[in-house]
Design a protein around this nucleic acid. Structure first.
Lengths: 224, 224
DNA sequence: CGGAGTGTCGTACCTGGGTATGAGGCCCGG
DNA sequence: CCGGGCCTCATACCCAGGTACGACACTCCG
């Protein structure tokens, strides 16, 4: 089963080079080319490639917009190729946009030829691959965004007792004092007492600010 | 400038294999080995390698804990090696933990030898590299978490007028009605009117739930 | 022109939530 | 065994916030 590839890049030389490189592989067929995003979509819709090599910067319709169109096609279009983005220099706004859109990879054009070839295979197999510098950024971003508890507010969270933390979490879920009391089998006044202490310890004014704190500290997270 | 590497793995065979493989490279020196995390840290502290190859599963102290220790050392320890995690099979809880901890890469042991070698070089250069399957997960996670506005709640957000959205955002910043009125140069009652409409449209009970909605919909984001 | 949508504000009412104060019981560590 | 957290609850007070109803101005559009 050969891998069907199309190449979308505004520079004819680049297309020719990549095409030659990839065609030389026995398991890869270059089945189309296009000089801009719009035509790239056309070619993709007619040739149904497994992988689309897509340059980022192009006239008419840039690679990002084209990638979005291919990865989130209008109703009726069933074909969904993998998209491997290419760029000459690693401006990273593009990277994030492309990954958001669902691209399977992001390579720099100065990568070794062997890398490009293996990237095509990896992407065709449903996996993903990024240029090392991009990987580093993505990890950094991940680590920055993710570290379970953030440090600034979350340290102060240590001042809370287990019960208080529990109450805070329920506040952050939108429950009223009554509901919290019911949930924890407590008198409503007890809940109020806990909340009072939480607000005092964290220097907050009301439950709305408590909710904010819960999100900012990582006690609760969007989508969870 | 050669790259100084140590290998931490509980299987002597694996250590020997990797050591042989890497030592054969003119730009890589294997300067130490260790059979578990605790000793790995010891060796790292004495040999000061550029890169630590670290197995995930190990007796005594697992690779994750050891990685954390190396990447976020106690006061006084200045040396901070790059950590490249290795695993036999790609259980991904480990992956996320390792990346959170600040690891520079994550490879499967069944990767081609050439990949391991180039990975060491990439990591030593300050970049990062992941196994393709890991990359895919990370991207998927990124795309899932990031898409600017989420769709479910954010669509309902479309029902809000600009002014209402503005007010909602200020609520989500923790402002009181008075403060919002001051900020927007309005009567407090006007603010109340807007809030009332927001709550009604979004089917929320109070401003605390409004804050939750703001975070869940992506109107505001933690850390922003 | 007339109506719909938006933004603005007033008056009036009610209650949930936050504050203050005090107090009893439990458990742990010094 | 005693002091100190922690958890629990009561009584009492007050007000920010939420609700209800009505009103006026402006803009856009059929």
């Amino acid at each position: 089963m050969t891998i069907r590839v199309i190449i979308v890049d505004d520079q004819a030389m680049v297309r020719a080079g990549f095409a030659a490189l990839l065609s030389a592989q026995s398991d890869i067929d270059v089945v189309g080319e296009a000089p801009d995003g719009r035509q790239g979509i056309e070619v993709s819709r007619t040739t149904h490639p497994d992988v689309v090599l897509m340059d980022v910067r192009m006239p008419e319709m840039d690679g990002l917009a084209a990638a979005r169109e291919l990865l989130d096609p209008p109703p009726g279009v069933v074909h969904r190729p993998k998209v491997l983005m290419l760029t000459t220099f690693d401006v990273d706004d593009y990277v994030y946009e492309a990954l958001r859109a669902g691209a399977s990879g992001f390579l720099l054009k100065d990568a070794p030829p062997a890398d490009l070839i293996s990237a095509v295979r990896v992407v065709a197999a449903g996996e993903a691959l990024l240029a090392p510098s991009v990987t580093r950024r993505l990890i950094a971003d991940f680590a920055r965004q993710r570290p379970a508890p953030r440090k600034d507010p979350s340290l102060r969270l240590n001042g809370l007792t287990p019960r208080e933390t529990e109450v805070l979490e329920l506040i952050a879920r939108g429950l009223s004092n009554q509901e919290i009391a019911a949930r924890l089998v407590l008198a409503e006044q007890t809940v109020k007492t806990h909340i009072g202490r939480v607000l005092a310890k964290l220097d907050l004014r009301d439950r709305a600010q408590a909710v904010i704190f819960a999100y900012e500290s990582g006690l609760v997270s969007p989508g969870a």
